[in-house]
């Protein structure tokens, strides 16, 4: 393989370095395109699979206001999936291909959604911490180099802020509620805190795609930097709730101006990624089942559309 960059590649990198956005019809290196499709589609799949752990609580939301809020929130996630599939499709790959990759396991989605939501408290922590961690990442991606991806991110970030707040509000109610509610909140925080930190991915030193993604400005901040931001911002939020921080090694580091955190259980991280989470199989089979059950509906649409076209042609 030729290791010297071609003129096209140099011009491309110059655009990136000058903060010009790359748009769909522009020339781009095959690796950039591949990397983007991988990242955006993984992101899209995460939004869509992420509907499940919260979606099954819509029917049990304990007040009508919560029911409406949760439904609107989960529906937004479907919308985010749509925006992101739409961004991926600008690169000439179809949604059908992307869905196929998800269902056959070639494409990944955020591993956090393989954790079960067992209690109503989890609907609080998922909104607060999982959406919170996602927002850290998405805010930085508003400056990503690919135009359609950046624009989707801007749109998504606008909608996300309500997601995190509604989650935190659930936690506030639980934390000041009955003893059972408060322990529900603590238990949920304990279960979701570490997996939320894992959402930022492996340490920069271990991350397979990081260097290239940074050079192409597909990613704008590293995993560890984003994780640090999240750790720092979460401390006062936990404090305000009056809950115990799950990280017993957490300590303020005056010199760095950040919290030093305990080490993540990377074995668990890889374990869940490799299919051993509580819900890995369930999430995919749910998606496959809905998709297959929808096949006759999509078929009917196509058939109807064909009939109408034929009718119009006859009339003309």
């Amino acid at each position: 393989m030729n290791s010297l960059p071609s003129d096209l590649e140099r011009a491309f990198q110059a655009k990136i370095d000058n903060e010009y956005k790359i748009e769909p019809k522009d020339w781009m290196p095959a690796g950039y395109r591949k990397n983007l499709i991988r990242q955006i589609s993984q992101h899209a799949h995460s939004e869509v699979i992420g509907m499940q752990p919260e979606g099954h609580w819509i029917t049990r939301a304990p007040s009508l206001r919560r029911k409406a809020v949760l439904l609107a929130k989960v529906q937004d996630e479907a919308g985010h999936g749509l925006y992101l599939y739409s961004a991926t499709e600008t690169m000439g790959i179809t949604r059908a291909e992307l869905i196929d990759a998800l269902q056959t396991g070639q494409a990944k989605y955020a591993s956090i959604f393989n954790y079960p939501t067992q209690t109503w408290g989890d609907i609080g922590t998922v909104g607060w911490l999982v959406d919170g961690a996602a927002i850290c990442n998405q805010v930085s991606l508003q400056r990503t180099s690919y135009g359609p991806y950046a624009r989707s991110m801007i749109r998504i970030c606008k909608e996300e802020s309500f997601h995190q707040r509604q989650g935190y509000q659930i936690m506030m109610e639980l934390a000041k509620g009955t003893p059972e509610q408060k322990s529900m909140a603590q238990d949920s925080l304990n279960r979701f805190y570490w997996p939320s930190l894992m959402m930022f991915g492996p340490h920069d030193s271990e991350s397979a795609h990081s260097a290239k993604s940074m050079k192409w400005k597909i990613k704008r901040e590293t995993n560890d930097d984003l994780r640090q931001k999240f750790i720092d911002q979460t401390v006062p939020q936990i404090e305000f709730l009056g809950l115990e921080h799950p990280d017993k090694d957490l300590k303020w580091n005056e010199e760095r101006g950040h919290y030093d955190a305990g080490e993540i259980d990377w074995e668990e991280f890889h374990n869940v990624i490799n299919g051993n989470g509580h819900c890995n199989r369930q999430r995919i089979s749910h998606h496959v089942a809905a998709h297959e059950e929808g096949a006759w509906v999509r078929d009917a649409q196509n058939a109807y559309n064909a009939k109408m076209k034929a009718r119009r042609a006859e009339a003309a």
């Binding site: 869509v48 509907m51 499940q52 979606g55 819509i58 439904l71 989960v74 529906q75 479907a78 919308g79 999936g81 749509l82 599939y85 749910h286 809905a290 059950e293 929808g294 096949a295 509906v297 999509r298």
Partner: peptide, 11 residues
């Protein structure tokens, strides 16, 4: 929710 025949209809 999450059971629609395709994403647009789910929304």
């Amino acid at each position: 929710t999450s059971n629609g025949p395709f994403l647009e209809e789910d929304i």
